[in-house]
């Protein structure tokens, strides 16, 4: 899922500094699961902004709504009525949701409450880790289920590099060397010899380097 975290409240407030009434739009998808932008966080942020503006002598009115998901156009229209009489919309979705709102409400000031961080998952209550580089050409079958694209600091395909020290990456003692992990896992699987096959340069055009990506499923597209 997409992991996002809330911006500093002062930064959020600054984005709507001249507004008297705002809609805070939460999202029931990934940001609910990663505890940053669901209904509860939306209400907390709304209350905190109201308090903050009240302190500053510039009262702010808020309304809140949490869409099932902001990354699906069908879930946006129920907000139409609420959006009509606000000066701005603060989206607590990932960057995808913010853009869907901006597309639908063209004349409205739509701002993000979140920093969209990465594709990853939870490692426990309150901790998340990046797991996928969204490269568009998955190699996990060759690397023992450990992604070198995102978990190796250099995204190298034939690791490890010389910066691997006692299983850690040279960038930080907190960061595991992905290629050490790959080596250990392939060894445990009895597939170490597969790592001797030199991987050709990766086709990064399938990743972000090829420009904005789209998927069109001809079999599903009507007409």
């Amino acid at each position: 899922m997409i992991i996002a975290q809330q911006k500093n409240i002062q930064d959020i407030a600054a984005m709507v500094g001249d507004c008297k009434k705002v809609l805070l739009a939460g999202c029931g998808g990934c940001v609910t699961v990663c505890l940053s932008g669901g209904e509860k966080e939306t209400e907390i942020l709304a209350a905190a902004l109201r308090l903050m503006k009240k302190q500053a002598g510039q009262p702010l009115a808020t309304v809140t709504y949490t869409a099932t998901r902001q990354c699906e156009p069908e879930f946006i229209p129920p907000m139409d009525e609420l959006v009509r009489d606000v000066d701005a919309v603060i989206s607590l979705a990932c960057g995808v949701g913010v853009q869907y709102l901006a597309e639908r409400y063209k004349d409205k000031w739509i701002v993000p409450a979140m920093d969209t961080m990465f594709a990853g998952g939870a490692t426990g209550f309150g901790s998340w880790e990046e797991k996928c580089g969204l490269c568009g050409d998955c190699v996990l079958h060759r690397t023992g289920g450990i992604c070198p694209v995102i978990r190796c600091s250099k995204s190298i395909m034939n690791g490890p590099c010389g910066g691997s020290q006692h299983g850690k990456c040279e960038i930080s003692k907190e960061v595991d060397c992905a290629w050490q992990l790959i080596y250990d896992r392939m060894k445990a699987l009895g597939r170490l010899s597969e790592l001797t096959v030199i991987q050709p340069p990766k086709d990064w055009s399938k990743a972000r380097d090829g420009g904005p990506r789209r998927i069109l499923r001809e079999d599903l597209i009507k007409g």
Partner: peptide
């Protein structure tokens, strides 16, 4: 922390 951020 939140209270401090919002000036309380």
């Amino acid at each position: 922390n939140l209270l401090e951020s919002i000036g309380l």
